[in-house]
């Protein structure tokens, strides 16, 4: 209850955002905005959950897409199994969602317990290595995962509580609700004392340990939660594409997510989503002119990293802060006269 009161402003904003998203999706009589926004929900959750590690905790993970793919695959595999849908009937979609999130979380506990002890470079290394491990498992375990073809033949989606996920409107609203709920969870986590503990660890882990923070445990909790949220992103994409593909676990997916964070802004809560939107638009525009999108994206990354040296929203924030300070300084001067 106190949570509701403390975060009432954020909750209201989230609710307004949800209403807006639903209005856009249902109001416009064209599939494009719904498809575009659904893919943003998936990519946005991946990028935002990764930013909990990179921006808030200072853990640069280069293997976060592994959890994204894991969520999508668990969800798809469960619903494709006749035994599972037969046993659970109408409840199979929510149960599959729950199992995908919890299962990915458990996998993240194992991976996290090994990786989180290590700092900086080793951490980036290992997360990348484990991601490539998952990728090779997906590729080689053809009987289960379909290898490089991915999960083919569509994912059955039994109707539950009157929600028919085969219907594009129902599916869009369902994905929008999942997305906003996950964003809200991340907002609460990062603005709570726990979130400030994360920032403290990022800024000075040794000092945090002196103050009695169990650094390992806090990092691990953050790692597991962000991985589970990435899994929700994977579930949304699996619903959207009605399949799951090994590219989701490929390193380039993680690289893209990192770039979304960087492009949008590391130090602003909604930065990664802006980055996801910007990158998607950039991708679509480049694709209209050339099939060699990678080279253009690569050049853009170089420009942003070496030229701007920060993301779009970081840039705006810095500019805003500077302006405020200039105004304050001017007021102080006036007051003294």
């Amino acid at each position: 209850m106190t949570l509701l009161i403390e975060f009432r402003r954020d909750l209201l904003i989230a609710l307004a955002g949800l209403v807006l998203l639903v209005a856009i999706g249902l109001g416009i009589d064209h599939a494009w905005p719904r498809d575009f926004l659904t893919s943003i929900f998936a990519a946005g959750l991946l990028a935002m959950s990764l930013n909990m590690l990179i921006g808030y905790t200072g853990l640069v993970s280069f293997g976060h897409a592994a959890f994204f793919a894991m969520g999508g695959y668990i969800f798809g595999l469960l619903l494709q199994s006749p035994a599972f849908t037969g046993a659970l009937g109408a409840g199979s979609v929510p149960v599959a969602l729950g199992v995908a999130v919890v299962g990915t979380g458990l996998y993240a506990v194992v991976i996290g317990a090994i990786c989180v002890r290590l700092t900086e470079i080793y951490f980036a290394f290992l997360t990348l290595a484990f991601q490539m491990f998952l990728y090779s498992v997906i590729l080689s375990w053809v009987d289960l995962t379909g290898g490089d073809q991915g999960l083919m033949g569509g994912i059955p989606r039994p109707i539950f509580l009157g929600i028919d996920l085969a219907d594009q409107y129902h599916r869009y609203v369902f994905c929008a609700v999942l997305f906003v709920a996950c964003v809200m969870i991340m907002r609460i986590m990062t603005e709570s004392p726990f979130g400030y503990t994360l920032r403290m660890i990022r800024d000075n882990a040794t000092r945090a340990a002196f103050l009695g923070v169990n650094v390992f445990r806090v990092k691990l909790i953050c790692f597991v939660v962000s991985s589970s949220i990435a899994a929700v992103g994977g579930v949304i994409l699996a619903l959207f594409t009605s399949g799951a593909y090994p590219e989701w676990a490929f390193w380039a997916q993680s690289g893209e997510a990192i770039f979304m964070i960087m492009l949008g802004g590391l130090n602003v809560f909604l930065g990664p989503i802006l980055g996801a939107v910007a990158l998607r638009i950039l991708n679509d525009v480049v694709q209209m002119y050339t099939s060699h999108t990678e080279i253009v994206i690569g050049v853009v990354i170089m420009f942003v990293v070496l030229g701007l040296r920060r993301g779009i929203l970081d840039f705006v924030k810095d500019w805003w802060v500077e302006k405020q300070q200039a105004r304050l300084a001017a007021e102080n001067r006036n007051g003294q006269e």
Binding site: E120, A252, G255, E294, I297, G298, V299, M302, V305, L306
Partner: peptide, 25 residues
């Protein structure tokens, strides 16, 4: 050399961009 001493994220991104460009070339 432009990202020496900067945080790991920058180095990672620069290398990521380089790999994308070289693979496409």
């Amino acid at each position: 050399s432009r990202v020496y001493g900067q945080n790991l994220l920058m180095q990672l991104l620069v290398c990521y961009a380089f790999i994308l460009i070289v693979d496409d070339l």
